[in-house]
Design a protein around this nucleic acid. Structure first.
Length: 446
RNA sequence: UCCUCGCUAGCUCAAUCGGCAGAGCGGGCGGCUGUUAACCGCUAGGUUCGAGGUUCAAGUCCUCGGCGAGGAGCCA
């Protein structure tokens, strides 16, 4: 007897198979019972007829509690009526073995739940089709990220999670005692280490969890999130944008190829993802500022108008990003931000010191910034000056300054937030559903 | 840190001007051979977030506190 996975059920039409999984839902119709069974790879309907089975077994099936674990044997049939993911196939129950009859007080009803209740039961919530689908997409996004870098000459370099100091000085850090060495901090970026790594390996990326103790309380923020950060030697800002659009397009295509049923089950409009292709539009901060001014003047709703208020020199807020990206169907590059709103290590624009060679990639449909990147400063003297200007301890950056002493080259890199990317691809409201166990300012359980 | 909103059955939510605490889902019992979060009948289920206060009477009004959500700022 072949034990199959639901995602490959189409290959077994007409065959007798074994399926191991959990009863997601049960609908009994008297002499007929429908079990919606999930096995981790999908959801499939299993149908039991009273006449086909021993009476005691049918009786058990009719009373099987939700989430009971079972091993089912029977023939695979194609049937358009059958629900499931991918759906369209069902298994006729010829035999069913109960591994465990679940307790009858399973708390997750098959309906909408409030966020607090759902998050308190995250360990069970992930069994539901929407959460299952999102996390399957996440796994594919991660695979696509590694696949692209690994096949484009990048070397994976894991940067430390425990770090001695702030990489960017501004953001709040999680702090911990570190033996006799004083304080250590959870990383908020591996970038500075990657700048060292490229001088040894040329092109590198790090990929891991990142921690920000910001008291951000929005649908776009987590205190623990995953970020992939490539860094490339001999690379300027224009080349960086080309890499970013190739990279993002690859992720979108891989997800469309491998996770269509999951995206459809989430109600995602796939046509909006299918049209993602290079080149992405590129506008300067100056052009963006002009467009925002026009949008501000055109806005009639006084509340929205207030949120769109903008003047040259400030960073974009979320309403600004949304308004800008709504003008485009592709992800949008905005480059050349004011130096004062960006980190200390960014290369100044030639002839315009008030602007730096930075670029953000804003996702369409109001999902906002998914990538932040820049060409890094290559001059020792200017970097030292910036470290002083930002009030950073020179001693802590001694090794970083060394990189500008021994074979400095123009180089660039970026960081992409995995959860924001997953939220965009899935079309979901809140980033907390894009990671298995979200950590927010108000939650570290479960 | 600031602004806004919310907290009633296991869950999602009602409860008019301050006047008997309600429904659907989930649970239990029964019915039904094609259900799609099935449907139909019956049934059990309540410290209305907490502490004070006003009132003949408080889920509802007032004060303080707690918890949560959305947004701003900051960021990926």
């Amino acid at each position: 007897m072949t034990t199959i996975r639901v995602e490959e059920i189409a290959n077994y039409t007409g065959q007798e198979v074994t399926l191991r999984g959990w009863v997601y839902n049960r609908t009994d119709k008297g002499k007929l019972v429908f079990l919606l069974v999930r096995d981790g790879s999908g959801f499939v309907q299993c149908v039991a007829f009273k006449g086909d089975l021993p009476e005691a077994l049918f009786e058990q099936i009719m009373r099987l509690p939700q989430e009971s674990s079972v091993i089912i044997t029977g023939p695979v049939r194609e049937d358009k009526r059958a629900p499931g993911i991918p759906g369209g196939y069902e298994i006729g129950v010829r035999d069913l073995q109960i591994v465990q009859a679940a307790a009858e007080d399973y708390p997750m009803a098959l309906k909408e739940h409030g966020p607090d209740f759902a998050l308190d039961h995250r360990h069970l919530w992930i069994r539901m089709p929407s959460q299952w689908a999102i996390l399957r997409v996440r796994a594919t996004v991660i695979a696509a990220i590694r696949e692209w870098f690994d096949t484009h000459g990048f070397i994976n370099m894991d940067t430390p999670i425990l770090t001695p100091a702030a990489c960017e000085g501004t953001t709040t850090l999680f702090e911990t005692e570190y033996f006799d060495e004083g304080k250590a901090y959870l990383t908020q970026s591996g970038q500075l280490y990657n700048e060292a790594n490229i001088m040894a390996f040329g092109k590198v990326y790090c990929f891991g969890p990142t921690f920000r103790a910001e008291k951000s309380k929005t649908r776009r923020h987590l205190t623990e999130f995953w970020m992939v950060e490539p860094e490339i030697a001999f690379c300027d800002l224009d080349q960086l944008m080309e890499i970013e659009e190739q990279f993002v397009t690859h992720i979108v295509q891989r997800v469309l190829r491998d996770r269509g049923p999951e995206l459809r089950s989430l109600g995602r409009d796939l046509s909006k993802l299918e049209r993602i292709a290079p080149p992405f539009p590129r506008i300067s901060y100056d052009e963006a500022a002009k467009k925002l001014q026009e949008l501000y003047e055109a806005e009639t709703d006084p509340e929205k108008k207030e949120l769109l208020k903008f003047e040259w020199g400030i960073d974009f807020g979320s309403p600004h990003e949304t308004a800008l990206t709504n003008l485009y169907e592709q992800p949008l590059f905005v480059y050349g931000y004011p130096t004062q709103v960006k980190a200390f290590y960014m290369e100044p624009w030639p002839g315009r010191p008030e602007v730096c060679k930075s670029v953000d990639l804003l996702a369409p449909e109001g999902y906002g910034e998914i990538i932040g990147g820049s060409e890094r400063m290559s001059s020792y003297d200017l970097l030292l000056q910036r470290i002083h200007e930002h009030g950073l301890p020179e001693e802590a950056f001694k090794w970083y300054l060394d990189l500008r002493k021994y074979g400095s080259v123009p180089h660039s890199g970026f960081g992409m937030g995995v959860e924001r990317t997953v939220a965009w691809l899935c079309g979901i409201e809140h980033i907390r559903e894009a990671i298995p166990y979200p950590r927010t300012i108000k939650r570290v359980y479960p």
